[in-house]
């Protein structure tokens, strides 16, 4: 991982050296987890019972156990088996950071799939019927009608998940990843001052603030029709179309 300050002049620069790890862990697990979550949400809504059961079981297991257990299971647990040590996966599972990314990804997949499922289920069935009536195939229907609306609906919930994941990356410090949390803890142990922990907290707050702003901006971009109503321009009266 890159080092921002080779010779940190103060505690701020020292903690900032852990920033690349925090961001890498959060970004990679969120990106990977999002795609897996869309797949898992589709499995959960699939008409085939075993697929549904699998998705339900996966979400249940990962949401009912602490992330720390999942991290330790993958990092310490898998390495104990010779079969794993001899497999092609070992170069990855040997490294703490790949284990951390794997655990964080699997964890966020479970939570995100529930958020996306809520979004998918919020799309009115009439629209699916209308799309069918227009002759759209399954793929086209999903891409043009269902998914765009589901994402818009799921975005506020997903924003929370992003913040939770940024916070969760701090658990990677328990398996030797030198992120902001571990650097701050080591510095505190060495100097008996809790200043480094406060500085790390400030960094996390700043990242989370930026992340929530980013999500709000995306939300704004994705919902032009709500924006128009907000600026005071009146939409033409559409009768009971908007009845809820």
């Amino acid at each position: 991982m890159v080092t921002l300050f080779d010779e940190p002049a103060n505690t701020w620069e020292l903690i900032a050296n852990g920033l690349p790890w925090t961001l890498t862990l959060a970004a990679s697990s969120l990106a990977l987890g999002f795609f897996l979550a869309v797949g898992l949400a589709l499995l959960r809504l699939s008409p085939v019972p075993p697929l549904r059961w699998f998705a339900y079981g996966y979400v249940y297991l990962f949401r009912s156990t602490p992330l720390l257990v999942q991290i330790f299971l993958i990092y310490y647990g898998l390495g104990q088996f010779e079969a794993v040590q001899k497999s092609f996966l070992w170069p990855f599972l040997r490294e703490a950071h790949w284990c951390a990314i794997l655990a964080l990804t699997l964890n966020t997949t479970a939570y995100t799939s529930e958020i996306i499922r809520g979004g998918l289920q919020s799309v009115p069935w009439g629209q699916v019927e209308a799309a069918k009536a227009c002759g759209m195939g399954l793929g086209l229907r999903f891409r043009r009608v269902i998914f765009p609306q589901a994402i818009r609906q799921a975005l506020p919930g997903y924003g929370n998940e992003i913040v939770l994941m940024i916070k969760s990356t701090s658990l990677a410090s328990t398996i030797t990843i030198l992120d902001m949390t571990l650097i701050a803890r080591k510095e505190t142990s060495a100097t008996f001052s809790i200043e480094p922990l406060f500085i790390a907290a400030a960094f996390y707050l700043a990242i989370n603030f930026l992340a929530t702003r980013l999500v709000m901006w995306v939300e704004f971009r994705l919902s032009p029709e709500l924006r128009e109503a907000k600026t005071g321009k009146t939409l033409p009266d559409q009768g009971v179309v908007g009845a809820r």
Partner: peptide
């Protein structure tokens, strides 16, 4: 509420562990 929701729980625990006594 903003502080607690924006700071990792692990950092909060460390702050209280190392700083609580002080």
């Amino acid at each position: 509420t903003t502080l607690v929701r924006g700071i990792p729980d692990l950092i909060t625990i460390y702050i209280i562990f190392f700083g609580g006594g002080q």
